[in-house]
Simulated scan of single mutants.
Amino acid sequence: MNKRLQDSGRQVARLIGLIVLCLVALQLYFLARIALMVVIAPESTAFQRSEIWRLAVDKHEILWSQQWVPDERISSHLKRAVIASEDAGFADHSGVEWDAIEAAWEKNQKAEARAERINQQLDKREARRAQSGKAPPKPAPHVAPKLIGGSTITQQLAKNLFLSAERTAARKAQEIVIAYLLEAVLDKRRILEIYLNSVEWGEGIFGAQAAARHYFRVDAAQLGAYPAARLAVMLPAPKRFEKNPGSAYVSGRAGTIVARMGGVELP
């Protein structure tokens, strides 16, 4: 009996050791990829490739507009606008802001609880209609909670470069590790340069140059303060905002960002 227990213990220990070895190897792979980015711009990101595949399957066409431009050819207005909108502490943090993650987690918990209560009320209403014998109208769709990420620009880049968009604890943990690797290997200027050249600004529109040409018919270097702020507003939901980039919300929020841009420190 003791021998069986010992054998089982050794098997568990070997399995744990193998898992740890695989995890370490994966982090070394990410580290090597990041080290190359010191001198070589990434040709595409995991997010871009997944989007291209989705468009090819759903729409039977490949939409991809992207042109890499170096840091000096990206308007300082756009850099300030994106930092002011997405990550005010970008110049100072080490890749992760734990207070922002905690605040986002608390807000998401409340949003999920609120959505669950609404959905339960909808289900009860549908059940009462069914019991009354009335022909119910088209069932009301369930409400999805509006979740926020609390991610820094570095974390967003980590996710876009290497990971999927799924919301799991394991994916978030890996995102945080990669963010620290990015900050350890690349300087802030390079992180922001890669981010601005790869982030999505609409369906099939990636990077500052493609966004500037698509929305304003100018190069990324020529973006003024207000157009740059409008692009920054679009980043959390580019597919939604691209349908009406001149909406009252985008315009109003852009004005707020312009007011904050003067206090932004560039790396």
Rank of each mutant, 00 (worst) to 15 (best):
D7V: 09
R190K: 04
A84G: 00
T45M: 06
A254D: 04
L182P: 00
E193D: 15
R128Q: 13
A210D: 01
I191P: 02
A169R: 11
A212K: 04
A179V: 03
I118E: 11
E112K: 12
K243V: 03
S151D: 05
A104I: 05
D87Q: 06
L28F: 07
I52Y: 06
H77I: 09
W68Y: 11
Q174I: 08
L266I: 07
L122G: 03
I101M: 14
E166P: 03
V218L: 09
E72D: 14
K124R: 15
I118Y: 06
H142G: 15
A81P: 05
D87I: 06
A169P: 04
A179P: 02
P42Q: 08
L55M: 15
L163D: 06
L235Y: 04
K124A: 15
Q27H: 13
R217S: 14
K159Y: 02
E166C: 05
L5F: 03
K172T: 01
K243R: 08
I40C: 03
L122E: 11
K172G: 13
A81I: 03
M1D: 11
V82T: 01
D58M: 15
A127V: 08
A184M: 11
R4G: 14
A165W: 05
G95C: 08
G255W: 01
Y29F: 12
K3I: 12
